[in-house]
Design a protein around this nucleic acid. Structure first.
Length: 106
DNA sequence: ACGTTGACGTCAG
DNA sequence: TCTGACGCCAACG
């Protein structure tokens, strides 16, 4: 599980479902978030910041660490904007969602 | 050790 | 296309 998140390249992002799918359980998206929520910053080796929801939105924004994640992503060159007025930040999956099949930027 | 909660995603109507 | 219900399982009380 964490190994998958570790495999996320710099400047790219992945969705919970994607990580869950790679983990072997396409329905265990929640588990992914649960684990990431468990490690938070305990594991600097795990770029949990590069993990977002299938909408490209930052769920952590309502958890408290959203500001940190947004800052970290932007620090990597990932463009983070607003999906809508009142909603949290959002990332363009079309441009930043990591695709392991491509094994490249894409 | 048991039960409830939760950083989500997919199937069905 | 939008809404409703279920599944997964680690962390917390």
């Amino acid at each position: 599980m964490l190994d998958i998140v570790r495999a996320v390249p710099h400047g790219k992002v992945v969705t919970y479902g994607q990580v869950a799918l790679m983990a072997g359980s396409p329905r265990a998206a929640r588990q992914v978030g649960a684990v990431l929520h468990g490690i938070r910053n305990s594991e600097d080796d795990v770029p949990w910041q590069r993990v977002i929801n299938a909408s490209g939105g930052i769920s952590t924004f309502k958890v408290g660490s959203g500001e940190l994640q947004v800052a970290l992503l932007k620090a990597e060159g990932v463009e983070v904007g607003h999906g809508g007025e009142g909603l949290g930040p959002q990332v363009d999956l079309k441009a930043y969602q990591w695709r392991p099949d491509l094994e490249s930027d894409g």
